[in-house]
């Protein structure tokens, strides 16, 4: 059983799907682990304009992807760099055995925001 915050993000995501004009794409996890998070963003003048995710995994994984996409949109890359898993854990009230979702999200955002100048 999941709490309402997780269920709402899981049942009603609005950021899923491809992003053809993506400036950057990052991916964490593997099929063997049973969870993958992929995030694509468009960036204009160091600000994240659009974020779209693809996710495979449990409801908490999908809810986390939706939460992160919402979090990223409208933020500067520098601001997003400060993202910490604890913020997601607290906001979705992830139970202890689902903390890995937030840790994956942190890795994902790190990959996205440590952009080295090469387009993906």
């Amino acid at each position: 059983m999941y709490n309402d915050a997780i269920l709402k993000h899981f049942h009603e995501p609005s950021h899923q799907g491809p992003l053809p004009q993506a400036s950057m794409i990052a991916r964490v996890g593997s099929e063997m682990d049973g969870r993958i998070l992929e995030m694509a963003i468009t960036v204009e003048q160091d600000a994240i304009v659009t974020a779209r995710f693809k996710a495979h995994g449990c409801p908490a994984t999908i809810a986390s992807a939706e939460w992160v996409a919402t979090y990223l949109e409208g933020r500067s890359l520098q601001e997003a760099q400060n993202f910490q898993s604890a913020q997601l854990m607290a906001s979705l009230q992830l139970p202890g055995h689902k903390h890995y979702c937030a840790l994956m999200a942190e890795d994902l955002v790190k990959q996205l925001t440590t952009y080295d100048g090469e387009e993906s």
Partner: peptide, 11 residues
């Protein structure tokens, strides 16, 4: 195949 069972049940 390639579709998480827990997510499917929850959906």
């Amino acid at each position: 195949h390639k579709t998480d069972g827990e997510s499917l049940i929850t959906a």
